[in-house]
Structure formats: C-alpha cells, structure tokens
Design a protein around this nucleic acid. Structure first.
Lengths: 122, 122
DNA sequence: GGCATATTCAACCAAATGGTTGACGATTAT
DNA sequence: ATAATCGTCAACCATTTGGTTGAATATGCC
C-alpha cells in the first residue's frame, strides 16, 4: 500500500465527495444560497436577485453546488428550479463527528466502524 | 441592511470562521493530517513522513489548519508539536445541523458498536 | 566550535477559483 | 413574427492555492 496514511482507508470516491462538498461550503455566497433554498425551491434568477454579482456568476455557483450534490436542478419550461439536497451533507457530517466526543472508545475500532458505515452509502 | 440575504444574520466573524474551516477541510492532505492527529500529538517532521510532498508543503498545510483553529502548534525545543483542536469544528457542525438533523451515523449500529467497545474495555 | 536536525521563509510556478462581459439557444409573451 | 425573459457558454482577467526549490534560522549534540 503506497498511500499509507490515515484516511487512505476511505475509498477515492468518498475522498472526492468530501473534497467537493467541503469546497462548495467554503464560499459564503454558496452557503447563503443553500440557506435561501432551505426556505423554498427557487429559480436561478430569483436565487441571484439579492446578490451583487452577475447572473453568470450565480449560475457557476449553482453548478458547483450541483456537482457537490448539495442541490439539484430541474428545468421546467424556461425556468430552472433549484432544490436543496441536504442529504449530501451527511458524508461531511459523519466525517466531522469522528473528531468529537468519542475519546473514551477505541479509536482504531471506531475508524473501522466509520469506514463500514460510509461504505454502506449511509 | 444592504446585504439582505439568508446568512447575513451571521456576523462577519462567523462567516469568516466558516470560510476558513470549510476551506481547510476541503483538502484531502489536510483531512488526513487531522486524522493522524486524532491518534496522537505529532511533530511536523513526523506529520510529513507518510506524504509524498515536501516538508515545506506540509508546513504550509499546518499553517492553514492552525489559522482555521483546527490544530494548535507549540514549539518545545527545536521541535514544534501539533495538537488537534476538535472544538474548532463546532461552528461548522452547528451550521450544517441547520439543514436537517442527520444523526452522526446509523445510531443503532453505533450503539451496538459502543456496547462492544465498552464490554471489551471492561 | 562545528555539525546535524527541525522548521520556516522567499521566490517562483502551474492550475484552480471567482468574477466580468457579450453572444447565444430556448422558451414564453405580445 | 417579433420581442422579452431565462439561463448558459466562452473568453478573458486577477487572485488564490498547492506545490517546488534553495537559503535561512533555531536548537540540540559531540
């Protein structure tokens, strides 16, 4: 095993998912968009309305959120509806919980447990 | 209020904290480093050992993790010790929980795991 | 003192990121 | 048919990012 460091137990897909999700969340505009979609599905133009940047820029942000799986986009007529997909946050959440309140237990075993959980696509 | 969009309720500090934490987590090398530090505090050189990139690159990664508050570094003698600071994940975790309550992992399975762990330990 | 070890700094580089503008295809309205 | 609206695309730009190398700065060891 060449890449023998912690985290290499995750398969490449999981690593990539975490990459794209965390990167998507690292931008305040994108986080604001997600918050907006928490209240309701929205058309691209309406998403863009409160921001001071171009529609094209918003379109790019929505593309990044879509690629990360955090939203889905469905075109109905000439308007494209954006819908929050909060389940995409799950992998990131699971990863982060590994750093929390679990001191007392055997960490190696816990990591193996986590890997099984993630492999199950939970 | 000029910037009237969801998320503008957070003050600038919170936004910046989320920016830096999520950005820090978006890199697989940095996530691997955090996982390593979960097991024990480490010196910079030892952190670098399993990776195929230069020590200077690792030093930069550690600087980013430090700026995000995810680790702390204390120089003792000529070696600088890196220590995980998992509390820095809290703001990010709280933000994410706003999008639905994903339990950390499959809770039943997790509890079974915990029981096994505790039995083994006793 | 002199040498090895630990870590950072500085300069540089290629690629990615977040933004712009103007043109364009698709759909709806007049 | 023509015009307006919705959204993306393409080209471009400045800045950031993740990496390199070589020199510099501590600190510890003989």
């Amino acid at each position: 095993m060449v890449d023998d460091y912690p985290g290499s137990g995750f398969n490449a897909d999981m690593t990539e998912a975490l990459d794209t999700v965390f990167a998507a969340l690292a931008d305040p505009t994108r986080r604001a968009i997600l918050s907006m979609l928490l209240e309701d599905d929205m058309a691209v133009t309406d998403v863009a309305e409160p921001f001071d940047i171009s529609l094209a820029a918003i379109s790019k942000h929505l593309g990044i959120l879509t690629k990360a799986g955090l939203i889905s986009q469905e075109k109905r007529g000439r308007v494209k509806w954006c819908k929050l997909e909060p389940d995409a946050l799950r992998s990131a959440s699971v990863w982060m919980q590994g750093f929390g309140q679990f001191e007392p237990v055997n960490l190696e075993a816990f990591e193996r447990f986590l890997e099984r959980e993630l492999d199950d696509g939970a």
